[in-house]
Nucleic acid binder design. Structure first.
Length: 584
RNA sequence: GGCCCUAUAGUUCAACGGAUAGAACGGAAGUUUCCUAAACUUUAAAUCCAGGUUCGAUUCCUGGUAGGGCCA
């Protein structure tokens, strides 16, 4: 519809004013207080044409009315040209299958999640996972998408939890404690920190400076020793490392399943950091990087407006970026993607600038295909989540809490009471997941968002529940229709009311919304759209009978419209990684 | 100290440079003999400040202020 209008309006400008409308031509929806469906604004051309806005709009309007069969009337208000589309055309457009994309255009690798194996997943990870997953789903309409995860499974922080377990673990395992693996390991990480702090305080009271104490604390020295042993391939350390990491992976898997997240390929930092090191050393020998007197390797980015950046520590151990270099190369060689997307928080904006530059300097022309999909932090009302202060919102706890709340509401309202135990539980889980996913995804990714644990996530208003409810309502109507042996079929020529018109226009919008979401990497566009569609339908439902409409032709139309809306809601939900349910 | 990001009702979010800035929650007032009230209707309430560009600025530019982040 949009394209068609654009073409014809461009033609109108050419024929009437011998002028290319160009990029200035923007079609928007007519505001509700005016008559019309689509609006263009002729102000941009007033200077060139040297006529009044009203005159220009009038001319274009006349041209369209005379030359385009689908325009039924137009109105000019100031510089705005409001066009009305023939109902028949709207019906055709709204009910045809949306052609989102014909062929897979590009190969895209998208990395998201990227957890550390020393801590359980929290709300920040949830945002990352949901964004990555939804964007993959959206892009899959246009491209061949490969979802990858990079697990940060090595380094000093991992050794800390290993060391603590070794010292104080008493042979605890997820099996014998019934504690989820990632939680158990996380507990030991916290324990390390606690004991480490005690040692620091002890040393300070013995006259050490804070800095000295932090370096000299025996626990820290032991952890560092463990890391060295790990890097040398010490068998005992490696066995412990493998065991504990496996606990964590099992734990993560449970959470991923709850969120409906899967990956096509998992990379481990322990398998890529050596490769990264090789490239850093290669760059050093080629004079791309330089070495400081202590032996550390750096890259000078002052020419590019940045600082010098450390690539390899003095003791030869690698830093974050070292392994990112290795992983990028590995990934490129494996998939030869046209584009590599990294879904990583905006705290790492600088890091990715550096990564791109470093890869460029190493001569990888594909470095420019890297796109850092940067998203804002999830904050609490009192500020950042801090694990030390215990304010981190744990992913599993949050999901459990939401399920509990959904259950209470369902029991109280008597919903789902006919369902058997399993269907009921499944329904609750899906409702809770939808509420969480929608809550996170409706916010523009680049913005920081606030999460209030007390108020938690709403089940009323602009929420995932509302969307699911609308869908279930329509399913209920359609089920009743089929019970009454009413066949949903195309109606004959029909007059439609304003609400129906609004709904048709929204349906026509769907493919454009998906395209916009894809080009902006922004699932919030889909979320806003589906909310708008659901709200519009609920209002419609309230004011007009659908199944109970007596005129069979109108009833037919209303049923087929409802069916189409349900289908579109479901599509949107699926793009957000949300599963719909037929009853609630 | 250098660089980056953000700023919209009491709160959480919308609004390709376009018409009277939309919603939700919360507040106030209503709607169940009728297709699911997790819904619907009515109502009060906002663009951080000062300049600039433009026919037109919440949106773009400059300078403040406040918050967040990154690099030392």
């Amino acid at each position: 519809m949009n394209e068609l209008l654009k073409q014809d309006i461009s033609k109108a400008f050419e024929q009437s004013f011998n002028l290319a409308a160009g990029n200035e031509l923007i079609i928007q929806k007519t505001r509700k207080e005016f008559i019309g469906d689509y609006t263009i604004n002729v102000f941009p051309w007033v200077k060139q044409i040297r006529k009044s806005p009203e005159e220009i709009a009038q001319t274009i309007g006349n041209y369209l009315l005379n030359n385009c069969h689908y325009i039924s009337e137009f109105q000019v208000i100031k510089g705005f040209l409001n066009l009305s589309i023939r109902t028949q055309t709207l019906l055709e457009q709204a009910f045809k299958e949306p052609t989102i994309s014909q062929s897979k255009q590009q190969q895209i690798v998208i990395e998201f999640s990227s957890p550390n194996t020393n801590k359980p997943l929290h709300l920040g990870h949830i945002r990352n996972n949901l964004l990555g997953n939804s964007i993959s789903l959206i892009l899959s309409n246009f491209h061949n998408v490969i979802k990858v995860n990079l697990i940060n499974d090595r380094g000093i922080h991992i050794c800390k939890s290993m060391l603590a377990w070794q010292k104080w673990g008493n042979g605890q395992t997820p099996e014998n404690t019934h504690i989820k693996g990632d939680k158990l390991v996380g507990d030991y990480y916290v324990l390390f920190d606690k004991e480490y702090k005690k040692q620091i305080e002890q040393l300070i009271s013995n006259g050490y400076s804070k800095e000295e104490a932090e370096k000299k604390a025996p626990l820290m020295l032991e952890a560092q020793e463990m890391l060295r042993k790990w890097e040398q391939g010490d068998e005992k350390v490696h066995n412990l490392w493998k065991t504990m990491n496996q606990w964590v992976y099992n734990g993560f898997e449970t959470t991923y399943q709850k969120l409906g997240i899967t990956f096509d390929k998992i990379y481990y930092e322990s398998e890529t950091y050596e490769l990264g090191k090789q490239y850093v050393l290669k760059g050093l020998s080629e004079g791309i990087f330089f070495q400081k007197s202590d032996g550390s390797v750096w890259v000078d980015l002052t020419q590019d407006g940045l600082d010098e950046k450390l690539l390899l520590r003095a003791d030869g151990t690698s830093v974050y970026i070292t392994q990112d270099i290795g992983t990028a190369v590995l990934r490129y060689n494996e998939f030869k993607p046209n584009r590599m997307i990294y879904v990583v928080g905006n705290e790492q904006n600088y890091h990715f600038q550096v990564l791109k530059l470093v890869l460029n300097k190493l001569g990888f022309s594909w470095a420019n295909t890297i796109y850092h999909l940067s998203y804002g932090m999830v904050e609490l009302p009192e500020g950042k989540m801090k694990s030390r202060e215990g304010t981190v919102v744990d992913a599993d706890d949050l999901i459990a809490e939401l399920e509990h709340e959904a259950k209470q509401i369902a029991l109280k309202s008597g919903k789902l009471k006919d369902a058997d135990e399993i269907t009921f539980q499944k329904g609750i889980e899906k409702i809770a997941a939808a509420a969480l996913k929608y809550f996170i995804l409706k916010v523009d990714p680049e913005k920081n968002m606030t999460f209030n644990p007390q108020e938690s996530i709403d089940f009323d208003g602009n929420t995932g529940t509302f969307i699911l409810y609308t869908y279930a309502r329509i399913q209920s109507i359609l089920n009743k229709a089929s019970e009454q042996n009413i066949v949903v079929q195309k109606p004959d020529a029909i007059d439609i009311n304003d609400k129906e018109r609004e709904l048709l226009l929204l349906l026509i919008d769907f493919p454009y919304v998906v395209a916009e979401a894809a080009s902006l990497f922004n699932p919030a566009k889909i979320a806003n759209y589906v909310y708008c569609l659901s709200k519009e339908f609920n209002q419609y439902y309230q004011s007009y009978p659908i199944l109970k409409e007596e005129n069979a032709n109108i009833r037919n139309f209303r049923l087929i419209l409802s069916q189409k809306i349900a289908k579109t809601i479901k599509r949107c939900c699926n793009l957000l990684g949300i599963e719909t349910i037929d009853k609630m």
